[in-house]
């Protein structure tokens, strides 16, 4: 791997919570495949188990 020549400026933090959702914070935009903006929040939790009744968001169904 070559050395990084440019400063890395992260805009957001994407955190995959253990046995839980994807938590995203920072400067980001959520959209669907047509690139329409769905949401531009400060924080979002996305379902990772496929069972949420409020997809793409987590509703805690993974715990049940």
């Amino acid at each position: 791997m070559e050395e990084v020549k440019k400063e890395f400026k992260p805009q957001a933090i994407v955190e995959v919570l253990e046995d839980g959702p994807i938590k995203i914070t920072g400067n980001f935009m959520v959209s669907d495949s047509k690139r329409d903006i769905m949401d531009s929040p400060e924080e979002v939790y996305l379902c990772r188990c496929g069972r949420s009744g409020n997809k793409p968001y987590c509703d805690g169904s993974h715990k049940t």
Binding site: K9, Q11, A12, V14, I24, G26, N27, F28, M29, V30, S31, D32, S33, R35, M38, S40, V44, L46, P56
Partner: peptide
């Protein structure tokens, strides 16, 4: 570099 991160939900 300063672009917001794009989070795209694929159907």
């Amino acid at each position: 570099n300063a672009e917001p991160v794009s989070v795209k939900i694929m159907p």
